[in-house]
Design a protein around this nucleic acid. Structure first.
Length: 957
RNA sequence: GCAGGGAUGGCGGAGCUCGGUCAAACGCGGCGGACUCAAGAUCCGUUGACUUAGGUCUACGGGGGUUCAAAUCCUCCUCCCUGCACCA
């Protein structure tokens, strides 16, 4: 009788709602607020997203079983630009997007309305909320809100006023990708082909014209090679201009001047010809050397300033350019090496001819030496080879290079780079600039090439603030983080998190208080909203308007400042409601757990920590963070391009929500990716059906006195409860549920196979099992629970307590021994059947000979001592025949250090166990089975009985 | 480039913090068998190589090292994944 998921899911969801199971209010129990980032409602969620929500739901349900008063709320996120982007794409009839929406079974009539952003928000919230309800998430829906409503904005305004008062907001300049045509910042989704504009800061090193005051700025990643410069390169076909920056004249490509104008005050004075520049000489700012300017074949107007400093000893392109000039009548300067390689553990080897051949084909596997040798040999060298060579040289020198010349002689190259850069900047003629470092030029969707613009007056949250960071870090270390390894990631993020831009020109959201024409960036506005869950329904019930939510309201509720009476007077909010808000906040915020995908550690979660530390009392700082990995589908990443995205609704329809939840939540440990495989989901359904069938057949089963088999099942059950509870408290979900679920199914099958039929024992097992699967599979558990004849809701039941008196390791070990002996016997039959004397015969009987106790004792002694002499002389063996013992042990002497102790079951007990299971064993093995202890056996095989491994005597006839 | 994480059998994935219990948990898949009219599901066995009684050999990205002993420690190399900021 297969479970009908489509029937039981809505049935129990409805019953829970009617009983208000998930509507939580403070009471005498210990409270905990368990929450998860509100979903972004630009597109509907797919089954990959479900993992985080279902894991959160698991946690909430588990804690409820464990006696906590749990609040699991939900809201919706809509600030920022993505929803604007959707509306724009719909207006443009974007086919890709429309196709995607079709996959979510959204009809064209609704898609047509999505030019309206508020329609999108409402519509997507509807879909998402429905999906969450169908997923059986135990959410208190009375507290839902959206991040674009006035109450939310009031809270965010309060937040930023407090941050500003604490001096944590800073203003400054900031480079962004910029479309000169549209006049706004461009991010990844604003560019053609979704190229993320990669911005890098580099230095333009100023070389003064030998005869005038004009400067040649050379962009470079490697200013430390300055003393190795032999000349400058300009492009013969490049258009140059003279431009004025900060009262000085610079030569640069016309293109560079255009780009740099977005980064600094720059005025073009007029065109300059490349041939004119080629006649000039320059002075090296580091050592005063007078250097020529030569034509460089690779120089491009679009890269850097269009002027390159030539370091032939360390830059393959420069070297090759000079080589090409040889024979053209131009005198080519000699390079100077300024960096020495010190690679102590792995000294460079001379390259083989074969390796040089590989280098000629621009093969990455060739060594840097091979490339250098190739360069030395001269001849035609392709740009491709030069590119690889450049990369390898750069890497080699960055990793192992030591300065071999100049002021920083002996310093590591990477250190010298920064020092020399700083020296050059402070000397006046050099400057920093930003450059897009994408391999190809980046274009805005409008077709204009993207440049880097320095935005002035940009506001930041200063997460680099020393005191703030240290307070946050210290608190972070005291938190419960799951999985354990995530703490390390948090530490790293703490190390590098610094200023973060917090407002921008476009998008939905709350106006930025210090510049009302901008809005607060959508990660920054979502760091303390979890507190809103604790009281928003009270505001709604009391008909409080947003205008009444003055700063003193939040000061009172969130910071406990002021008193309800005066706050009530100034805001007009009912005094009792105010007190209730504060009490609710205090109750729920005393213990919290926040869940999320592990990708959010890098931004949201750390910001969440910082903001709480800055704004709340210490006792309301976050207590626990649980992060989980992504979900793959049949071994592949879920992505739009692979077309393997399955909407939650459809996933539920196809698989049933509980099997889906089970696979997603416990299919992998928190920290790793889980894989969604249809076969595995099916196997969960099969196992559920097995349990279901067993439950429905319970009424026919009778109770009887407990047998060995019953004790075994009880022992399994109780040791499982104990172990799984410990694992779950540590959020080791997969390991716990392998034991709770998979192993239970196996054990039950085995119990039945062994002839187990005690209704009372099975009922006890199944009832406790049902409670334990309910956090993951609540609908199935609820169905089981009622089949078991219960009237209560299983989702509100207490977690089972292990009965220590029923845990019996001996029984479990004896069973395990019986198991392993069965397969040993099978193997023995298989092997002896091949003996000619046995051909055509059948097995007549099987005797299992259990090793004497002294053997086990001696063996364990050796395993512990790892030393023959000690083991033999041991006191614990007194009374035993020393000679016999040492003879027995000598066979293990070689491996003494690798031995492991075996369970110390008295051999009489084991023999008894085997003989109690005679029927079962005989049936399984197809011949009568009996067991005997070694000392009572006359079989020639008896001495082969080993601790933990009985000897087997098979008689054929 | 920088930072973090990873590379284990046909596949996914444990183990690697405390080196010997590791031919390697668990789950898929493959093969053989039982059941079935049949398919599916389920159950049993098997799934590195060799081996007619529990044994031997070769294995944990590549090189080098430490050790009586390394998937596990050190080191170098190669490759892969993720993040790098205004983007939620």
């Amino acid at each position: 009788m297969a479970l009908n998921y489509a029937e039981i899911e809505p049935k129990w969801q409805k019953a829970w709602v009617e009983a208000k199971v998930y509507e939580s209010e403070p009471d005498e129990r210990k409270g905990i607020l368990i929450n998860v980032p509100f979903p972004y409602v630009n597109t509907p969620l797919h089954i990959g997203h479900l993992r985080t929500y279902a894991t959160t739901d698991f946690h909430a349900r588990y804690k409820r079983h464990r006696g906590y008063n749990v609040l699991f709320p939900m809201a919706f996120h809509a600030t920022g630009t993505p929803i604007l982007a959707i509306a724009k794409r719909i207006t443009n009839k974007d086919k890709e997007l429309i196709e995607e929406l079709h996959k979510f079974e959204i009809p064209d009539s609704d898609i047509a309305k999505m030019e309206d952003i508020y329609f999108i928000v409402d519509y997507m919230i509807g879909i998402t909320e429905e999906a969450f309800k169908q997923s059986g998430l135990g959410i208190d829906w009375r507290r839902k809100f959206r991040s674009i409503e006035p109450i939310f904005s009031k809270m965010v305004e309060w937040q930023f006023a407090r941050l500003n008062a604490a001096g944590l907001l800073k203003q400054g300049s900031h480079p962004v990708g910029w479309c000169p045509n549209e006049g706004n910042a461009v991010g990844q989704h604003d560019t053609r082909g979704d190229a993320e504009p990669e911005i890098e800061k580099l230095i333009a090193v100023g070389f003064k014209d030998a005869d005038t005051d004009a400067i040649f700025p050379c962009t470079t990643y490697r200013p430390e090679t300055i003393d190795g410069v032999t000349n400058l390169f300009v492009g013969e076909k490049v258009e140059y201009v003279k431009a004025r920056i900060g009262g000085k004249s610079y030569f640069m490509s016309k293109d560079a001047a255009t780009r740099l104008a977005y980064q600094m005050q720059l005025e073009v004075e007029g065109p300059v010809s490349a041939s004119g520049l080629l006649k000039k000489n320059v002075i090296n700012p580091s050592n005063g050397e007078r250097l020529p300017i030569l034509p460089g074949f690779f120089v491009e107007a679009e890269v850097g300033t269009g002027i390159v400093m030539s370091v032939p000893a360390h830059a393959p392109f420069d070297y090759a350019a000079l080589e090409r000039l040889k024979g053209s009548g131009i005198q080519v300067p000699q390079g100077r090496s300024v960096i020495r390689i010190e690679r102590p553990n792995n000294p460079p080897k001379a390259p083989t001819g074969e390796e040089i051949e590989r280098a000629r084909k621009a093969d990455h596997s060739a060594s840097v030496e091979a490339y250098l040798e190739l360069l030395k040999q001269g001849g035609e060298i392709s740009d491709e080879v030069l590119e690889v060579a450049t990369k390898l040289v750069y890497r080699e020198e960055s990793r192992w290079g030591v300065m071999a010349y100049g002021k920083y002689l002996g310093r590591k190259e990477t250190d010298a780079r920064g020092l020399i850069s700083a020296d050059l900047i402070s000397s006046g003629s050099s400057f920093n600039m930003y450059e897009l470092t994408n391999p190809k030029p980046v274009f805005c969707r409008c077709g204009t090439r993207v440049v880097v613009k320095t935005v002035e007056g940009q506001w930041f949250i200063n997460y680099g603030d020393k005191k703030w960071k240290e307070d946050t870090r210290k608190h972070m270390r005291s938190m419960r983080m799951h999985p354990e390894g995530s703490m390390n990631t948090f530490e790293k993020v703490m190390d590098w998190i610094d200023m973060r831009a917090t407002e921008r020109a476009q998008g939905l959201g709350t106006p930025f208080p210090l510049n009302k024409s901008h809005i607060i960036e959508s990660l920054s506005d979502s760091t303390i909203y979890m507190s809103l869950y604790t009281y928003i329904h009270i505001l709604r019930d009391s008909k409080v308007s947003a205008e009444q939510l003055k700063p003193e309201f939040f000061d009172f509720v969130l910071s406990g400042k002021g008193d309800a009476g005066s706050v009530s007077k100034s805001t007009g909010i009912d005094e009792l409601a105010l007190k209730k808000c504060r009490d609710s906040f205090v109750y729920w915020y005393s213990d919290t757990a926040r869940h999320s995908g592990s990708d959010l550690i890098y931004n949201h979660l750390v910001m969440y920590l910082f903001n709480h530390v800055a704004l709340f009392d210490r006792k309301f700082w976050p207590k626990q963070i649980v992060t989980n990995g992504l979900v793959n589908y049949e071994g592949q990443k879920m992505s739009k391009s692979l077309g393997n995205i399955i909407p939650i609704k459809i996933g539920i329809r196809n698989h049933g929500v509980d099997p889906l939840r089970f696979i997603e939540v416990v299919g992998a440990e928190l920290g790793s990716e889980s894989d969604f495989r249809v076969d595995e989901v099916k196997s969960i359904r099969t196992k559920n059906d097995f349990l279901h069938k067993l439950i429905t057949s319970l009424p026919e089963m009778k109770s009887a006195e407990l047998s060995h088999n019953d004790f075994w099942l009880y022992s399994k059950l109780n040791s499982k409860i104990k172990r799984a509870t410990e694992l779950l408290d540590g959020m080791l979900l997969k390991e716990a549920y392998i034991d709770i679920y998979y192993n239970s199914v196996t054990e039950l099958r085995r119990y039945l196979e062994r002839g187990g039929s005690n209704g009372m024992v099975l009922r006890d097992f199944l009832e406790k099992l049902t409670v334990m699967i309910s956090p993951i599979m609540p609908h199935v558990a609820e169905e089981f629970w009622h089949e078991l004849g219960k009237a209560s809701f299983v989702v509100k039941e207490s977690w089972p307590e292990p009965d220590a008196s029923m845990i019996n390791p001996d029984v479990e070990q004896a069973e395990a021994l019986i198991d392993s002996t069965v397969s040993d016997v099978r193997q023995g039959i298989e092997l002896t059947s091949k003996i000619p004397a046995n051909s055509g015969k059948n097995v007549k009987e099987i005797t299992i000979i259990v090793a004497d106790d002294w053997k086990t004792a001696a063996y364990n002694r050796l395993a512990r001592e790892r030393n023959m002499a000690k083991a033999v002389s041991s006191d614990s063996l007194k009374g035993a025949d020393k000679e016999k013992v040492s003879k027995f042990l000598s066979q293990f002497a070689k491996r003494a250090s690798a031995l492991v102790e075996v369970p110390r079951l008295p051999c009489e007990y084991v023999v008894q166990g085997f003989n109690d299971s005679k029927d079962y064993l005989s049936e399984k093995l197809g011949a009568p089975v009996s067991a005997v202890m070694e000392s009572n056996s006359s079989s020639p095989r008896a001495p082969r009985a080993m601790p933990g491994k009985p000897a087997i005597d098979i008689t054929w006839e």
